[in-house]
Design a binder for these strands. Structure first.
Length: 982
DNA sequence: AAGTCTTCGTA
DNA sequence: GTACGAAGACTTC
């Protein structure tokens, strides 16, 4: 660092040396301010922000007279100080550093440097000792010293040439203030502290003597040694005995509290001369931290255009140094940010945590070098890569295809990686030139597809070689269609999901930026986007090769970082039982698809269209003009503008709200138009989303519909389904169920639908430890009726439907993290009444209130909650300042434990289902999952034998990991279509 | 052409 | 009050 030269300037008489107690600032900033995280990546930066604001205030205040000639921000370095050597209990009871403060230490040092201020710290010595030494040296040269700190331990340094300044209270501390605090002058502060001790730092002192008594004794006897020598003269019995008995302890305390004024300084006093701040570096830092207000202020003060300055590339979100920080490592030393004894011990041993930390460190320090990639053009070279993979026992794989749908896309090439920067791309089907109707236009130097498949098949199917991929379900399906059944794999996307669900995204690009500090080539850079986009097989091989090989390289590197975290963070079992097995289970379900009755859907489309036509005519009639009933804007204008119907609400953006609830209310008041709109909307929804769209998803070859299940899409562990979404097929209305009837079994088969009955309520009874609810489930009672009976004192026999309905709404409300507002909305009752219901519910079921409080507190403290099976769901915004955001996160966290536990259970069932069916000699095939329901296709004559197996696997899914007190119940039925089976 | 808002289907 | 995805309207580039 060439920054020492400009800082060198001997201290002379009349100079002004300012010493800032950095460590004290950090803790002040951390504890005094609400938590704050950087917007783009949730890096905790609250203390950094507070620290920067304080420094800026100090620098700008210029209230130091005379102007500082030398200035240093002084930090504590390690916990291992010479005081610990003489008294191991010194500061021993300090609580561990908060998790979100640790990574801020290196950032705060960065901040100091960005301010162009000297940053001083030294092993074995506390900041206080360093300041004492600087002060002593400066004094000797005739300089004036100002110590910026409010720490009472520094008050012993105050004298004619050394003053203190308390930045919190904004006042100077001179001898007068010291007397106020200790009852003695600065020169006797040490003696007072030796007697009174300090519970915070674990300085023992003498029992029964506090600051007041100590000051009084010293006033009488002069100094500590005299006092101890003449202790026998003291009148008060207990005090006399204690002073005699604990004299040594007082002397030890003196050693602890006396600041060392002769530390052999690493950075000499003359090397902390003030340099003229540049401003640009500071702005680059502040921009990287995303401190917009301070950035603006600083830019204005320096008259610099902040927009023209790039955020510090290493520290910005996604920067390499940020990646290290996220792992708790200091970007400069690559060591744990604060080397605690625990961390030091881990660093030496082969613990999972040590391995994980080491991998994170390596990952962010080995740059991606695309020039090292190879394009494989011969079978011989491919075979050498395969041999290398067998030798290593591990290889990263990525397939490149013509599209996003793994059931339709064709392979274009694949890439492999065996080590960082050791990656290749194998082009197979790149095309170029004129692609005539009959000619393929295949480019030269590509291995024939069949040869390549034959070369890699043994590798991919070998159980002894680990294949690593990102979103491997996609590649598994592509390879499956080429006759390769991939086994023995890890999926980096799923590893990330297990570790960080809800906290950060799991796509390859964000993962690469976060863990490797590297931005991979974008797909658009190779193939363009929008209208001009080309398929991957039309991309030039050299560019495609860089892109594809990089994907495999990055995937391998991500695996090196993320996989050890599983063991280090105790999540290996979650990954291995709830995630990894689902890749092939879901891939097979997707590959099977489900049959739909296209004729039936087409007929329904016609019927819906007719109904809509009739309604449109009536709507125009009533409105007195034709408008688009599908436009909320136009509809709002008609209803609340032209027709002047009262009772309109606005959406958050200021538009008229025309939601179903609003229209329903208007309809109940006797308005005809809103009813017609509601009916029209239902038909429009069913037609556009289902009857018109579904036939478009029928696969040209299989004749079936193949949805795609996402494993890593939700915060709670649920799956999601898309293209098409088969998890939201209508069921509530008669019209909607007709769509469900169009999902049919193949000839000679039936569909079996098996769903968990009230699984989330059962889990609530279990987790919230509510005996009456548990008993009700054990006795097989109607749970909503039982709730109503408990709450309203109505007997279950002959209970009015309305009473049960309300109890049911409350039960669901509880699962969703209830609020009076939401329940009132749901039941259309006043908020006060809803509040009273909730109060009564909690009185009847106090365990549930306790559960909700516990979950809220846990989430608040940790930033995540865990399911029964250990899955973590992160809620980084749980401590948001905005009360409604915070409340939302609290409700989500309460819901996540239940929804997530249920999701875990059905995942366990799915992972066991195939082997269980096979063992029973059954050929039933799982087709769909709808959160608490599984749908199978079964030969007619196996229906009877299949249902009990399915039921048993599902009901026993939690065992043996978790033994539930509450039984799980599964309802299962078979029919020729989904509606009747459900 | 791409992104946001509103609405609505499911558990 | 929780968790999603899709479609159409509308806005912005």
């Amino acid at each position: 660092m060439p920054e020492q030269d400009p800082r060198q300037d001997p201290v002379e008489a009349g100079d002004h040396v300012v010493l800032i107690d950095g460590s004290a600032y950090i803790f002040r900033a951390y504890h005094a301010l609400p938590p704050l995280t950087r917007t783009s990546d949730k890096l905790p930066v609250g203390a950094v922000a507070g620290f920067c604001n304080m420094l800026w205030k100090l620098v700008r205040a210029q209230g130091f007279e005379p102007k500082p000639t030398h200035l240093a921000v002084v930090f504590d370095k390690s916990e291992q100080t010479f005081r610990k050597d003489i008294y191991p209990l010194y500061k021993a009871q300090r609580p561990d550093l908060p998790e979100d403060l640790r990574p801020q230490f290196p950032l705060i040092r960065e901040a100091t440097r960005a301010f162009d201020l000297a940053c001083v710290e030294q092993d074995k010595y506390e900041a206080d000792d360093l300041m004492a030494t600087y002060a002593e040296l400066a004094k000797a040269k005739g300089a004036l010293v100002t110590i910026i700190s409010s720490d009472k331990d520094l008050m012993q340094l105050v004298d004619a040439r050394v003053r203190m300044y308390d930045p919190m209270k904004d006042r100077a501390i001179g001898a007068g203030e010291v007397v106020e605090k200790f009852g003695v002058g600065p020169e006797k502060v040490v003696d007072v502290q030796s007697l009174a001790g300090d519970s915070v730092d674990n300085v023992p002192g003498v029992p029964g003597i506090g600051i007041k008594t100590a000051a009084q004794l010293l006033a009488e006897y002069g100094d500590l040694d005299t006092l101890l020598a003449r202790a026998g003269e003291i009148k008060q019995t207990k005090r006399r005995e204690n002073l005699i008995e604990f004299a040594d302890q007082a002397r030890l305390s003196r050693e602890l509290v006396t600041l060392k004024r002769d530390v052999p300084l690493d950075v000499p006093l003359d090397d902390i001369a003030v340099v003229e701040p540049e401003g640009k570096r500071l702005i680059a830092f502040l921009k990287a931290m995303e401190f917009t207000t301070l950035t603006r202020r600083v830019a204005e003060a320096y008259e610099i255009d902040a927009g023209a300055i790039e955020p510090d590339p290493g520290l910005r979100a996604g920067g390499a140094e940020t990646a290290l920080l996220a792992a708790g490592l200091d970007p400069e030393t690559k060591e744990p940010a604060i080397p605690t004894e625990a961390a030091a011990a881990l660093g030496e041993g082969f613990t999972p945590q040590a391995l994980s930390a080491a991998r994170i460190k390596e990952a962010a320090t080995t740059p991606v070098d695309r020039s090292k990639y190879e394009t494989v053009t011969t079978l011989e070279r491919l075979r050498e890569w395969v041999a290398r993979a067998f030798e290593l026992g591990l290889i990263a794989v990525d397939t490149e295809t013509t599209g996003l749908d793994p059931m339709q896309a064709e392979i274009v090439g694949f890439s492999l990686a065996t080590a960082p920067n050791e990656a290749c791309y194998v082009p197979l089907a790149h095309k170029g030139g004129d692609e005539g109707l009959f000619s393929e236009g295949l480019l030269p130097n590509q291995i024939p597809l069949d040869d390549a498949i034959a070369a890699i098949k043994p590798l991919m199917e070998h159980p002894g070689v680990l294949k690593i991929g990102q979103n491997l379900k996609y590649d598994w399906l592509i390879l499956k269609r080429l006759g390769i059944e991939l086994v023995a794999y890890d999926d980096t996307m799923l590893v990330s999901y297990v570790l960080d669900a809800g906290a950060s995204p799991h796509g390859m690009d964000p993962l690469s930026m976060r863990w490797l500090g590297h931005t991979p080539i974008k797909y658009e850079e190779i193939c363009g986007k929008g209208k001009g986009q080309i398929r991957f097989d039309r991309a030039p091989i050299d560019k495609a090769s860089d892109y594809a090989a990089e994907d495999a390289d990055v995937t391998l590197r991500l695996w090196q970082v993320l996989k050890p975290r599983l063991a280090a963070e105790g999540k290996a079992t979650v990954y291995e039982t709830l995630e990894r097995p689902l890749v092939t289970v879901l891939a097979r379900m997707e590959a099977r698809g489900i049959t739909i009755d296209r004729q039936m859907l087409s007929r329904l489309s016609g019927e819906f269209a007719q109904g809509m036509g009739r309604l449109e005519a009536e709507i125009s009639e009533m409105a007195g003009e034709t408008f688009n009933p599908g436009s909320p804007k136009q509809l709002g204008d008609i209803l609340f503008g032209k027709m002047q119907i009262p009772g309109g609400r606005k959406t958050p953006t200021g538009a008229w709200s025309t939601g179903a609830d609003v229209l329903e209310e208007l309809a109940e008041q006797g308005h005809e138009l809103p009813r017609r709109i509601l009916d029209w909307r239902q038909l429009q929804k069913l037609k556009s989303t289902y009857t018109d769209a579904l036939p478009g998803y029928v696969h040209p070859e299989t004749g079936r519909v193949h949805t795609s299940f996402a494993l890593a899409a939700t915060t709670t562990g649920r799956l999601s389904s898309s293209e098409p979404n088969l998890q939201n097929i209508p069921v509530r209305t008669e019209e909607g169920r007709k769509i469900r009837q169009a999902f049919i079994a193949a000839p000679g088969h039936k569909l079996i639908s098996a769903d968990y009955s009230q699984i989330e309520l059962r889990l609530l009874a279990e987790i919230a430890d509510t005996p009456s609810l548990r008993q009700a489930f054990q006795d097989g009672l109607d749970i909503h009726a039982m709730t109503a009976s408990e709450m309203f004192g109505v007997p279950i026999e002959g209970m009015p439907g309305e009473v049960r309905r309300r109890a049911k709404a409350i039960n669901f409300g509880i699962i969703y993290g209830i609020s009076a507002f939401g329940l009132a909305n749901q039941l259309s009752i006043p908020r006060e009444e809803a509040g009273a219901y909730i109060k009564r519910y909690f009185e009847r079921f106090p365990g549930i209130r306790a559960y909700m409080d516990e979950t809220r507190n846990f989430a608040r403290e940790h930033g995540y909650v865990e399911t029964l099976f250990g899955r973590r769901c992160h809620y980084p915004d749980i401590s948001a300042k905005n009360p409604s955001i915070r409340a939302f996160n609290e409700r989500a966290a309460i819901n996540a434990r239940l929804q997530g536990s249920a999701a875990d259970i059905i995942r366990r069932a799915m992972a066991r289902m195939e082997p269980a069916l096979e063992k029973a000699g059954l050929s039933a095939r799982m087709l769909l999952q709808v959160h608490d329901e599984l749908i199978f296709e079964v030969p007619d004559d196996e229906v009877g034998a299949t249902i009990p197996v399915v039921r048993e696997v599902m009901e026993l899914a939690p065992f043996p990991a978790v033994a539930l007190e509450v039984p799980l119940k599964v309802d299962a039925r078979a029919a020729s279509n989904w509606d009747e089976a459900h």
